[in-house]
Design a protein around this nucleic acid. Structure first.
Lengths: 107, 107
DNA sequence: TCTATAGTTCAATATTTCCGAACTATTGAT
DNA sequence: ATCAATAGTTCGGAAATATTGAACTATAGA
């Protein structure tokens, strides 16, 4: 049903962004999107890790934080990072987080 | 009782750091410490905002995330940012967060 | 049209966070 | 020495969040 709401980044306070990034599953999703570009929910966060409904909720959190944009393509939902926008609003934050996350990846 | 535990930053995963920063009260504490240097708990986070016990817990979270170091001085506990260490472990993260937080401050 | 797939929503449970109350330790005054 | 005040911690329960399975929606393909 719902076509998703993607907030204007000016309306997203910094703690919301950091909170969204401050979860290992979501951070992994963000990393995957950074590495691979647009991905389906399933590919961005394999279901072994969390239940399908939890995963869906993680994407909701990421969207609400302005970190991810999701569009529907057939029966799939493709998400991608809002990199430039985010970098304009909060310069360096996403970049440094992604750089820091690189050496943590355990897959 | 407890003399505080301050983890080695190598033992602190990135999501823990981001989670600690992803709360408006804690972020404000961090900003205050960045601006003023070493501060007592009370000065870093005035009690009007949250209960004393909550504030105490926020500091515990910040310590566990390796963001803050606390030492006892008389009946006061002085906390300060672990800036250099944090910057060595996660370059740019704290700096960009502090820079981004500046224009958000509402006091 | 029937079945499978991808994801959402909902309601219940599990986990976290927040708070007040009781406690510890230190200081300063009497 | 004792008493009162201050700064913070710890604890247990209440409030808020997160996670999950089950039921649902929508699309695609046979």
């Amino acid at each position: 049903m719902s076509q998703f709401v993607h907030p204007n980044l000016n309306d997203v306070p910094l703690p919301i962004v950091l909170h969204a990034l401050g979860d290992s599953v979501r951070l992994q999703i963000v990393q995957n999107l950074a590495r691979e570009g647009e991905l389906s929910c399933a590919k961005a966060a394999p279901e072994q890790i969390v239940a399908k409904s939890t995963r869906s909720n993680h994407f909701k959190v990421l969207r609400a934080a302005g970190i991810v944009r999701t569009r529907k393509a057939g029966r799939i939902y493709l998400s991608s990072l809002r990199r430039e926008e985010l970098d304009e609003r909060y310069p360096g934050v996403l970049d440094s987080v992604l750089a820091a996350a690189v050496d943590q990846a355990a897959d």
